[in-house]
Design a protein around this nucleic acid. Structure first.
Lengths: 231, 231
DNA sequence: CCCTTTTGTCACAAAAATGTAATCGCTGTG
DNA sequence: CACAGCGATTACATTTTTGTGACAAAAGGG
């Protein structure tokens, strides 16, 4: 007797909730839908889901925060999580994977794509997203392993510097203003002075300098910063 | 030396038009307001806006249709569009984003939210991928990367020299007076002596001379300067 | 609850860019 | 040939922008 796999959807927007329950039911899943983290808390103990579809923005606790909590508790650590985010921000994606989310989808998404990703994650295979290792000139950034290395030596980077490097290495040869970097790496709605970017650029340069790779992080006066292999 | 960003508002309801011009002017934007797509057509060629705020429902052509037209024309493709829609319909939003609108706001909206979204979209700049590199006779100007090169060697230019070269290379074979250049490169409302142009022309020539390309920046006695490949 | 790491801000140093003014040099003219 | 008109060149003071180190608050991990 085949038992349908149970998916918990945590999503506050009613319209999307409707759409998701439609789509997933038709795809053969058993679904539970809640609108907030506190509601999810109650349910999860009672009926353990096989997968959680978690919105990034939620009324009470942020989805990111809840993901962190779930992954810290041995009881729930094994439940795969797919984050649903409105933005395509690099930083958010990395943050999501950082706390242990297994994959993410970006709104608006097609139902076909969503179902495909869910099935992949349930199968415990590698996510179809970018779990791969980016490698350029002896420099490697491993998103899943959350590590960066140069010539097989692990770089000692703080989380923000890692996201910065990852963003740069995936967006080379292009200048980004400080506010663009804040959007991309810190996330859309933060209030931080722009000069904070300078400081993190410096810290990244410092780390790269130990392997003489700091010339790739370039200052463009009056505009911002650029990552490029061309000196 | 900051130049206000220009926003074109296409909106037929007079009340909303009032409100928008109030809000946006106070937020420091330069705004142009029209009530229909046909009016917008005339204006857009004359004074290119940095962003278009486009109502969904309009008397002549629908906003959606106009967005599609704008995004199809290479001349206007780069201008970001924010759709203004009365409905919170998921379907509409998706349609808007599908034709290439960069964001949408739902009526009624708070002025604070609108300004925030406008700023975010303006900051985002052109999407990565469509690298608009202008190339003439071994000379390349990469606006996104903010870099100029001759025969694969990077030119060392200051910000103003870069803007000057970029302007010249996109407006060749035509003489510009010093005051025209001040308008175009420094921005409309500055008070700088015209002789400053001479100095920057010199600095640009100096940079080009290292690769023997300085003959393209030509002096037209009594009139101004010209950029031309013809010697 | 304590300790460590990470973060953002600030103040100051350093560097680069910018506009001006003085001077030099070329060109055509009377 | 002297002169006026205009652009080129140079040096320099000022302003703008970025780099750097220290520090305190906040977050994370035991």
């Amino acid at each position: 007797m085949y038992m349908a796999e149970r998916i918990l959807v945590v999503e506050d927007e009613a319209a999307i909730r409707e759409m998701l329950s439609m789509t997933l039911t038709r795809a053969g899943f058993e679904i539970m839908v809640v609108g907030s983290v506190s509601q999810a808390r109650g349910l999860i103990m009672d009926r353990r889901p096989n997968l959680i579809l978690l919105d990034w923005m939620l009324p009470d606790t942020s989805g990111l925060e809840y993901a962190r909590i779930l992954k810290k508790d041995a009881m729930t650590r094994e439940i795969p999580i797919i984050m649903v985010t409105a933005r395509g921000d690099e930083g958010d994606r990395v943050k999501g994977l950082e706390v242990g989310a297994d994959d993410y989808v970006i709104k608006p998404f097609s139902s076909k794509e969503l179902v495909a990703r869910i099935k992949t994650v349930l199968r415990r295979g590698a996510p179809p997203g970018d779990n791969h290792i980016i490698q350029v000139d002896g420099m490697r950034v491993d998103l899943a392993g959350h590590r960066a290395m140069i010539n097989n030596t692990i770089l000692d980077l703080g989380p923000t510097e890692f996201r910065l490097l990852h963003f740069f290495i995936t967006h080379p040869d292009r200048v980004y203003s400080r506010s663009q970097l804040l959007d991309q790496i810190w996330g859309g709605s933060i209030c931080i002075g722009e000069r904070a970017v300078d400081v993190h650029i410096r810290r990244l340069r410092q780390a790269l300098a130990t392997h003489n790779h700091d010339q790739y992080v370039q200052t463009v006066r009056g505009t911002g910063y650029r990552f490029s292999m061309l000196v």
